[in-house]
Design a binder for these strands. Structure first.
Length: 374
RNA sequence: CCUGGGGUAGCCAAGUGGCCUAAGGCAGGGGUCUGUAAAACCCCCAUUCGCAGGUCCGAAUCCUGCCCCCAGGACCA
């Protein structure tokens, strides 16, 4: 495998979708420094979707030699009425709990937290004419209709009536990408609308266009990771494939359903309890426990999944690949309870360093600052 | 600024002077039952009705003022 092929593989692996994958090899070959970003709202406790799904991709990108940036979107958090819309508190949590929590998560996954850049929205926008000019340019190159349809990126449903400020959110997110000079934009599958606008307007921007090593204007590559299923039963079961797209957002982990999500600093007992209560039908589709096994365990743990069972239940088993696990489960040869115990234990082990980090006084204090706000 | 409609739990929503210490549904929590969960069944979940006064024996329900939301309209030298 050539070096370029190896790096492309690292950049794109495990992604549910990559828009503009064809453009990657050329960028790599011309020695263009690759800059990544993912924007995160400061919305509350860090769950596995952010802590592990986002950060495992960051780790992969670092391994591919990409400069990674976490954009702490304090303005977007404010626009979206999160954390009570308290700007001062949002900033404080962003630079404290959020930043340190993400670094701890990345470290636990084998990435390099010291080489991870953090940019706060307020800092990027302050005294930055280019940013506001680019925002206007983005707006001039899209339509109100399109922006209204894209508010699903902020967890709002299409057609929902929102105050006008919220319509600034999507074009600001688009402008962020160009202002940060990013050529790889990462997001969950729920962010694709914003990234499609990014790519649509990329060639029309004059103030702050993105260019390659030769000075040609290019579009950022968009990489989208899988959204982890929430642990609760989907609102509609069985899931109708026709309605999958609209249901997807409702199926993801949500903070309003406390036990549908596991947080990065949950205690082993909490993790076991939540997973024990998880929806886990005999089917393999839309099975959150299998979903977590696939995307969290097999993508991070070389050892695969170790299942402990009593002798009368068949004794211990190891699965080296997800396919092996899925097929065994589908055949009814692995009991859901045993699967749950194994997945829980594996996550507990994976998150051990994160919990350790949160036991230290500085992070403990930052965490408690957040809890007071919730 | 005007006209009309509206503000009841996380969400939807009934109730228009006393039986409201506020119905119902969804979501959520606890439990029973299953070697998981789900389903089923049982239980919990607003001392309070946008805010402040007032009338009345008694107000979520009537009156006054204020705040906010929605749909129009007016203004636009």
């Amino acid at each position: 495998m050539t070096d370029t092929a190896r790096r492309v593989e690292l950049i794109t692996r495990y992604c549910e979708e990559v828009i503009g994958a064809d453009e990657l090899p050329a960028l790599l070959e011309q020695g263009m420094p690759l800059r990544h970003y993912i924007g995160l709202e400061i919305s509350g406790r860090l769950h596995l979707g952010t802590g592990l799904m986002v950060m495992q991709k960051v780790r992969d990108l670092q391994m591919a030699g990409v400069q990674c940036t976490i954009f702490l979107a304090d303005w977007h958090t404010w626009l979206n009425d999160k954390l009570g819309g308290d700007r001062q508190a949002i900033k404080q949590i962003a630079g404290g709990y959020f930043k340190e929590g993400l670094k701890a998560s990345l470290a636990a996954l084998g990435g390099d937290p010291d080489n991870l850049e953090f940019v706060l929205g307020s800092d990027l926008y302050h005294d930055n004419d280019q940013y506001w000019e680019t925002l206007v340019e983005v707006c001039k190159n899209t339509s109100l209709n399109r922006i209204e349809r894209s508010i699903s990126i902020m967890g709002r449903s299409e057609g929902e009536s929102v105050d006008f400020a919220k319509l600034l959110y999507p074009p600001m997110q688009v402008a962020d990408v160009f202002m940060l000079r990013v050529n790889i934009a990462q997001g969950g599958m729920d962010q694709r609308k914003a990234h499609v606008i990014v790519r649509d307007v990329a060639k029309s921007l004059k103030i702050c266009p993105l260019t390659d090593a030769k000075g040609n204007v290019i579009k950022p590559v968009a990489i989208h990771h899988h959204l982890l299923l929430g642990l609760s039963k989907p609102p509609e079961w069985p899931v109708d494939p026709e309605k999958l797209r609209e249901l997807r957002t409702q199926m993801k982990m949500s903070k309003s359903k406390p036990d549908s999500a596991v947080f990065i600093h949950d205690s082993p007992d909490e993790i076991r309890r939540k997973i024990r209560k998880a929806f886990c039908p005999p089917e393999t589709d839309f099975n959150p426990v299998l979903d977590w096994a696939e995307h969290l365990i097999f993508h991070n743990n070389e050892q695969g999944l170790h299942v402990e069972r009593t002798p009368e239940n068949g004794g211990n088993v190891d699965f080296a690949t997800f396919e092996e696990l899925r097929d065994t489960y589908a055949a009814g040869k692995l009991h859901p309870g045993d699967l749950k115990n194994a997945v829980a234990q594996s996550l507990i082990d994976m998150l051990e360093p994160v919990r350790k980090r949160f036991e230290q006084d500085d992070l403990k204090a930052m965490w408690s600052d957040l809890e007071k706000l919730l």
